[in-house]
Structures are given as C-alpha cells and as structure tokens.
C-alpha cells in the first residue's frame, strides 16, 4: 500500500510534536505574562482599567479560539500585513490563554480573606504594597494547581493551529494520513501523543490540589 512503516510514521509524528510543545510553552509563557497584567488591571482601583480588562477577558473567552486564529491569520492579511502561521498561532494563543489565566487568577486573589486586606491596610500599606507582600504571595500558592490544570487546555488548543498551516502534531498527522491512507493508525498515534503530553500535567495538577488541601 505504501512505503511508510509504522516507525517512520511515529518518528515523523514525534518530530512534529516538538513544535506542539514549543508552541504550547511559548503561548503559556507569553499568555501568563499578559494574563498577569490583565489580572492587575482587573483587580485595580481604576474603573477604566477594570472595564478594559473585563472587556478583553469576555471577548476572548466568549469567542472560539478558531475564530481568533482566523482573524489573526486571514484578517490581518487584509491590511496587507504578512503574518506567518507561527506568528498568528502565537498571537491568538497568547490572547486566548491570557484571558483564561487572568480569570483563574482573579478567583485566587478574591479567595484571600477580607481580613488580610484590612490588617495590611491598617498597617499603612498602599494598595500595591498589599498586593505585592500580602495578597499575591498567598494567591500564588492557591493558583498553582488550576494554572497547571489549564496548561492542558493550551496544549490541546495548539491543535487548531494546524488549520492555518502550522505544522505541529495534528497537521503532521493529517499530512501522514494523506500519503498513507491509514487514518485509524495515524490519528490513534496522534491522540496517544497528546495524551502522553497532557496526562502528566493533569495528574500533577491533581496532586498539587491534594497537597494544598492537606496544608489547609
């Protein structure tokens, strides 16, 4: 039928997996950075900042990631700006990730008891000093487990980048299927590789959650 042996298929998929991992990492890091800025705006005293942040979060949470990818890839091209699949995928995933992380982290910040704010306020700390020294250190501890848990969504989200021609795991699978005509084998392998990436993350997230509950 074809000259592609099982091992060659697997080898090619694994090579493409590098790009899935790299895209996930980059999206997660830059999404985390933007998410932190969004969080600070979301919980700040400035109404303008809060409204802008809420608008951003709602917009990117309330639309499909695929539409966001299309807008960055095809939409921007309408303005005669050349966008590579890499850049479009990176940007779309960053915006999408940051919106969700900001919202997850906001929940963590708001779960810190009011007494912590009042005590630090009474000690003459400014709002940002309260955040920096009292609230965020505590919120960070709570945030680790759901943040690691969300990273699973980012890894799976990178699959959509295949549609705009970014050759990562899913796209490689599609290409291999086109030449081998063995969809069941190819996509099973693809799914297994995603699982191998995601399962340790969600397992670790559950473990972190458990550990935190014991400490409380």
């Amino acid at each position: 039928m074809s000259d592609f042996s099982f091992w060659i298929i697997l080898q090619n998929l694994l090579l493409a997996t590098r790009w899935t991992i790299l895209l996930s990492l980059i999206a997660f890091v830059s999404g985390g950075f933007v998410g932190l800025l969004l969080l600070l705006a979301r919980v700040s005293h400035s109404k303008t900042l809060r409204v802008l942040s809420i608008g951003y979060i709602e917009l990117f949470q309330g639309t499909p990631l695929l539409m966001q990818l299309f807008l960055f890839f095809f939409g921007v091209a309408l303005f005669d700006i050349e966008v590579s699949p890499w850049v479009a995928a990176w940007l779309a995933l960053t915006f999408w990730t940051s919106a969700f992380l900001a919202e997850i982290w906001r929940g963590c910040v708001e779960s810190i008891p009011k007494g912590q704010w009042e005590a630090s306020e009474s000690l003459a700390l400014t709002y940002w000093e309260q955040m920096r020294y009292v609230i965020l250190p505590q919120a960070l501890k709570i945030a680790v487990a759901p943040t690691v848990g969300f990273s699973v969504q980012v890894v799976k989200g990178t699959a959509l980048a295949s549609i705009i021609g970014f050759v990562e795991l899913t796209k490689a699978g599609t290409m291999l299927n086109n030449v081998t005509f063995q969809p069941f084998l190819v996509y099973s392998l693809v799914a297994l590789i995603y699982f191998a990436l995601c399962f340790p993350l969600s397992w670790y997230s559950k473990r972190l959650e458990g550990r935190l509950n014991v400490a409380r």
Binding site: P113, G115, Q116, E118, A119, S120, E121, S122, V134
Partner: peptide, 15 residues
C-alpha cells in the same frame, strides 16, 4: 494609619 494601630477579632496574621 501610621499613628493608629488596630488589632482584630480574627487576628488576621499573614499566614
């Protein structure tokens, strides 16, 4: 607040 200290019912120490 540098001149007025406050102690709370629930202690509110930073854990």
């Amino acid at each position: 607040r540098r001149h007025v200290g406050m102690v709370f019912q629930q202690f509110n120490l930073f854990p």
